[in-house]
Amino acid sequence: MARLLEVKDLTTHFFTQDGVVKAVDGISYHVDEGEVLGIVGESGCGKSVSALSIMRLVASPPGRTIRGEVIFDGEDILKLDDSEMRRIRGNRIAMVFQEPMTSLNPVLTIGRQLTETLELHQGMNKTQARDRAAELLRLVGISDSERRLKDYPHQFSGGMRQRVMIAMALSCNPRLIIADEPTTALDVTIQAQILELMQELAREFGTAMVIITHNLGVVARYASRVVVMYAGKIIETGSAQDIYHNSKHPYTLGLLGSVPRLDAVEREKLEAIEGLPPDLIDLPPGCSFAPRCRFAYERCSQETPVLERVGDGHESACWRSSELTELARAAG
């Protein structure tokens, strides 16, 4: 499939009083047309900042993307001027944020917010835009949509607001949707509703999707490829199958061991990862994960490992990736 997005060596730092926060530190990945990519990692590892960097929405100061390229549809969007960027944002790349209330304008009706983008980006007139807006609401499962266009965001439940956000994201037939924790704030049954809906719509329109989440289950269900981040870097990437069944990084293995599985028959003790994620201002030398790693040896705290091929489309940044399967087996 054709490459839609290629992120190369993307680096975004925050220049604060306390020092430089290396929030995103040289990450590279790609998304093909119509593909669903999952990005996972713990709180603060740089998932949101990496997405905001692509959309060029990082607050500056203190943040600045100091290096890298974001090739979308053949052009580096980091080099575009602001007006060109606005044409891409919300039009060819749409973003769905975690908290729908903060991304909807509370003083405008739902209908106005939808028609505004349609008129701006699609050049529709008022009537066309209104009809399309009602159709979009129906598409995301909001009944009585003509009437609900007149409602304000606070008249909708959390799940419905998130569905409105998806309707907005879809309104301009984008090629790519970046969904940053699209359902974290919602109840499980509503979560399932929304994710299922996004998947269906993405399939129908051939839209590619990047789903950012800390929920390993969500990634397993919806993504075909997975990027695992730790402390501002990508530490492993591969097919969902590789990541979940043949991981070559101790952090990924640790994450998988620390979540209880709903289908577990025996109650096995969870394998917690000891310690805490590092301070992004003051990263340890060598591999950032080394202080918490069960398999770290001398080299790990001296030299930083880079992503290396460990299989077909499967890369890991670990000095011991080739022996890891045996090491993990021996450790039990």
Binding site: A192, Y244, H245
Partner: peptide, 17 residues
């Protein structure tokens, strides 16, 4: 509705939405 962190299991599961 609770996804299981295993793509093989997930591909086979039926869901009630």
């Amino acid at each position: 509705a609770v996804p299981i962190p295993d793509p093989v299991v997930e591909a086979k599961r039926e869901r009630i939405i």
